[in-house]
Design a protein around this nucleic acid. Structure first.
Lengths: 243, 243
DNA sequence: CGTATAATTGAGCAGCGTCAAGGGTTGTGG
DNA sequence: CCACAACCCTTGACGCTGCTCAATTATACG
């Protein structure tokens, strides 16, 4: 199952995901062409295949990982086998900023697509913070972003119905994609299965199917072959942002 | 409405809430009797009356506040007036660690009981982090704790039914109280109203009443006059911890 | 072309929301 | 000390959102 290989070729040189507020930017992990390169932290790039478990809950680790290519999820598994997806990870995002300060995480990380990610040593990252206010501030921003995303999910789960939750999720994902990648014609890569959406939004795949059928029939979205097209952003906004 | 007064008498000297992993401990805000006092950060103590809004969402602030006495909540209000409680704050806990790195917060802070809290300047806190690895690590712990609490809430909202959510909430709150205060006879102060529980767990007050009536009839809890007694911790565990 | 996984659709049901009425408690002013 | 208001909690009746179970049809992969 695990198709993982280590190699040190610096993918950072051509990183397509580093634009926008990002962990790597905060750490000054710069491209060779960037001016004033700061500390180049030791790091390792790794791969994993779609569906692979990248990290298992509770496993001891000294690394903080950043997703470079592909999509992943953080998953909490209950004793009875139910899965709650806590976050969807997009290229450029750390698995969890808390990994900088903890040696175990309370959730599992799983690749959705084939992925490439970078490992940093969390002691290295902490050492960078001690000497550089800009890095403290930058990583603090990442902490705020991660926190806000969880807040939004709590609000969705606590106060919104199924259609609103789906709309809200699509809006937030497409917004995050837009902030890092150039998107043409409101057409976004979208490798999530309906069971991912269900596991994240506290719904069943059956009901997600019904909700998305509704959005499709209303000509609000088009989701096919791993790509999501937003046909009517205004309508989606009205469903997903309001109560 | 706002019954707030500033005074600088150092309540920290006799702080009853500082035991356990805490923001103030991480910052080395020590009691006079403590050995090796480090930096004594400038700070102001303030009061607020029960129900007062301590901080309004979006308001500009340069402070990070820590609750000293009483209970408070962080609340997100939707355009349609629905309220989602994001966290319950107990004595010793910061309003949100993200306030160290942001100049606005996306939620409101409201006092549940009369409260006393301490304001630090977030620039002062950030300055402490630079140059002191122990403070970086300590505040990192707070970040992890806050993050984990939100994860738990997401799991409750996404994967558990009403009875499990209520049991889980009571277990987590009593555990946090036990970690800071000496508790006798499983009897905990509990100033939350059923509408607070409802607003946090995505339920209606009516249904919370039914669920708690069930727990009371099963001789699992006793909740009266602002105090919660856990009569059967094992049963509560079985309801709240499993799926 | 056969198999496994995903998505769709229908029928029936249950957990929880809504609406409404009644009782207990607290606080305030007379 | 009592009357009244405001708030909270409780309990019942009923209905809707979303779950369960199940069958059928795509879609992907070897």
């Amino acid at each position: 199952m695990r198709a993982e290989s280590k190699y040190t070729t610096s993918l950072c040189a051509t990183c397509p995901a580093r634009d926008g507020v990002s962990f790597c930017d905060a750490l000054h992990v710069r491209r060779p062409s960037d001016s004033a390169p700061r500390g180049q932290l030791p790091r390792i790039h790794e791969r994993a295949a779609a569906q692979d478990i990248i990290y298992s809950r509770g496993q001891h680790t000294n690394d903080i990982c950043v997703l470079c290519q592909g999509w992943a999820i953080t998953v909490a598994t209950l004793p009875n086998g139910l899965r709650q997806i806590l976050a969807v990870l997009l290229p450029g995002e750390p698995f969890s900023i808390t990994a900088v300060f903890a040696d175990t995480l309370p959730f599992t990380i799983q690749a959705v697509t084939d992925v490439i990610y970078t490992r940093f040593k969390n002691v290295d990252v902490r050492a960078q913070m001690v000497g550089d206010p800009a890095i403290v501030t930058g990583l603090g921003q990442i902490c705020v972003i991660e926190h806000t995303a969880m807040n939004d999910l709590v609000i969705d789960l606590g106060k919104r119905d199924a259609e609103q939750r789906v709309a809200s999720l699509l809006l937030r994902l497409t917004q995050r994609l837009s902030s890092r990648f150039v998107i043409h014609g409101h057409r976004y890569p979208f490798p999530l299965r309906q069971r991912h959406i269900a596991d994240m939004l506290g719904l069943t795949p059956v009901h997600v199917s019904r909700v998305m059928a509704g959005l499709r029939k209303s000509n609000i979205i088009d989701l096919r072959a791993g790509f999501l097209t937003i046909l009517d952003r205004d309508k989606l906004d009205r469903i997903g942002r309001l109560g």
